[in-house]
Computed example of a mutant assay.
Amino acid sequence: MARKRLTFDDVVRAGAELVDEVGYRELTMGLLAERLGIRTPSLYKHVDGLADLQRRIAVLAVSELGDEIRDRMQGKAGRDALAALAEAFRFYATAHPGRYTATISTDFAGPEDELFRASSRVVGSVEAMLSSYDLEPGQLDHAMRTIRCTLHGFATLQASRAFRWSGDPEESFDWMIRFLDEGLRRMK
């Protein structure tokens, strides 16, 4: 029986699944080749090396995150959209910790970069959510960074099981959304 021919997408998807299991920094071409049941040199038919594979995983991850955000935020505004964004972000970071790490570990190569385009979709969704808060134009970048830092912190702490003290993390998550919403409303 002939073995199914490996495609570029197969390699990137397998790499993404692997980083979720072993961690982004633990990914090697040898480990991926072993997972795929091929010899390491065969991977180079599909990617140019580890850095190229990591970049392609980042593009996949940012695209998936963008889809998750878009789908959850659809038809919502204000606090509901903020909550949907936070839920999408937290879901993705905890369900796909290796892929999420790829989203913050790879630099853009320029405006034509696939990663830049995928990231622009995410930024566009966040800007759309923020439009209901009527922020001054100079406050948009600050609001986006504050939201990203807050959601990143919560999601990565939850993914690493760092909420060890008493209290329900779900209540803290809801409190965080209320805190962000009220803060954004006061910045008008």
Score class of each variant (00 low, 15 high):
V59R: 00
E68M: 09
I69E: 09
V123M: 12
E68D: 14
M73V: 11
L135N: 09
L135Q: 04
A77R: 14
A86V: 02
S63F: 01
T106E: 05
L65R: 03
T94L: 00
F89D: 11
T146N: 12
T106L: 03
I57C: 04
L135S: 04
A51W: 01
P111E: 14
M73D: 01
R55T: 09
A83R: 15
V59W: 00
D80G: 03
D107V: 08
S63M: 01
D141G: 12
M73G: 01
D52C: 06
L151R: 11
A61T: 04
Q139W: 10
P97E: 08
M129W: 06
T150C: 05
V122R: 00
S63Y: 02
A88F: 02
V126C: 03
T103P: 00
G153Y: 09
G110C: 06
A51E: 13
L135P: 12
V126L: 15
G138V: 12
M73I: 09
E68Y: 01
G138W: 13
G75Q: 13
R56N: 13
R55G: 05
F154M: 12
L140A: 12
C149M: 14
E114I: 00
Y133W: 08
A93S: 12
A77H: 10
A84K: 07
G153M: 09
V126S: 04
L50F: 04
P97K: 06
G124D: 11
M144K: 15
R121H: 13
S131R: 15
E68N: 05
A102N: 03
L60W: 03
L140Y: 15
G153T: 14
A61H: 01
S125I: 09
S105Y: 01
